[in-house]
Simulated scan of single mutants.
Amino acid sequence: MATAVSARSLVKRFGRREVLHGVDFEVEAGTVFGVIGPNGAGKTTTMRCLLDIIRPTAGEVRVLGTDPRAGGPELRRRIGYLPGELFLEGRVTGRKLLAHYQAISGPVPRGRINELADRLGLDLDRHTRKLSKGNKQKLGLVQAFMHEPELLVLDEPTGGLDPLVQQEFHAMVREAKHRGQTIFLSSHVLSEVQQTADTVAILRDGRIITVESVEGLREGAVRRVRLTTHGIAAHDAVALLSGIPGVGQVQVLEADGAVTLSAVLEGAIQPLIRMLGSLELTDLVLDEPDLEEAVLKMYAVPREDAR
């Protein structure tokens, strides 16, 4: 599959302070690539380097097959961008502002602007200075999506949106992917990214800790399991469960001839499933993998190990 966006040994310094330390990644065309990390991790700086808003100190960047420093207006028309800090002209209506953006970005399908505004619940005839933070964010989303660009670069796109509008945004992302568009989005909230992303890069202190599929993160995440069984001694049940790779923190409770075990499981669940087939179960609870906990562990990796 073709590569839509790539960075090689990307470094950015502001004076003596280095905020990106040799960042490397590739984004396949037609996929959703999510970058997550705490505030200050370097997400916005990375995006601005991709868009030639700021220029790297060192390294190589390619966007839609082009060096963004040489792409000019032609490349920018192929991109839809929502910045993390959105500043809008306050003396015009949303409709007039979008007409201005349309003249810059190129053709917009007939009725597309009204369709997006209706989906997001945005009144285009209000002056932008009267819009709430959430409605300004909606306006920013409309301008990014309206010309159906090859690449969408969205920095913290759901900031200020209520949960229902967030779900509509996720639907818009899925539809864009279905049309073959590439989406590069950032967030500091994993649950936001995992709903739409195919691949997730975890950024910490200006370094990529890992690039992984959402499914890969799920396989390596922590699950909690609780089971109740009959016909086996407690110490034997504990030994069986403890012998499974990735199982830890086993707790046991005996009552009325039943043995209840609780534990955490990190890694594949197949060994657990095979072991459960040997027990006479009366209850079983296997939680969804805790991706947030898995990612927080990665944030805590010592800096020298994250390079």
Rank of each mutant, 00 (worst) to 15 (best):
A144M: 13
G65T: 11
E168Q: 14
H235M: 05
R274W: 04
L161W: 10
A300E: 13
A268E: 15
F33S: 08
K133T: 13
T31F: 01
L227Q: 08
H147S: 06
R179Y: 03
V35K: 01
E212P: 06
E26D: 14
R307I: 12
P68V: 03
L227A: 02
G231H: 03
R69T: 15
P271G: 04
T199D: 09
D67S: 04
V225D: 12
L286V: 15
V153H: 06
G71F: 03
H235P: 09
V173W: 07
A201N: 06
E168A: 09
L190K: 05
S191H: 13
L253V: 13
R129W: 11
L261K: 07
L131W: 07
G90E: 15
H100N: 12
E60P: 00
M298I: 05
T31W: 01
F25D: 07
A263E: 02
G216D: 13
Y81C: 02
T210Y: 00
A58F: 04
H188G: 00
E288P: 05
V247H: 04
G80W: 08
V173K: 04
L98G: 02
Q195C: 00
G71M: 08
P68C: 01
R204S: 13
D24Y: 03
G257T: 01
K136I: 05
S9N: 15
F169M: 10
Q166P: 01
P163Y: 07
L241P: 00
L151N: 10
D162V: 07
A99W: 12
G90A: 12
A2L: 06
Q251G: 14
K43L: 04
A171E: 14
R78Q: 11
T158N: 13
R226E: 15
T158W: 10
F169P: 05
T45P: 03
L203S: 00
E115Q: 09
L152E: 12
G34K: 00
H178K: 14
L124N: 08
H235D: 15
L97W: 12
H188Y: 01
A197R: 01
R78I: 05
E212M: 04
A234C: 09
R126Q: 15
L151M: 11
L265P: 06
K43Y: 00
P68N: 09
L261T: 07
L240R: 15
H178S: 12
V301D: 02
R129A: 15
I79C: 02
E219R: 13
E115P: 00
A233F: 01
P38K: 07
L50M: 12
A99K: 14
L185H: 02
L203T: 05
T158D: 12
P73F: 05
I113E: 06
T229N: 01
L82Q: 13
G248S: 15
D24T: 03
L82P: 10
P157I: 06
L122D: 08
K138N: 10
L151T: 02
D24M: 03
A268K: 14
G257E: 10
G22Y: 09
K12T: 02
G267C: 03
L152C: 13
D155R: 06
H147P: 02
K133G: 07
I209V: 14
A103N: 12
A103Y: 08
H188T: 03
V225H: 07
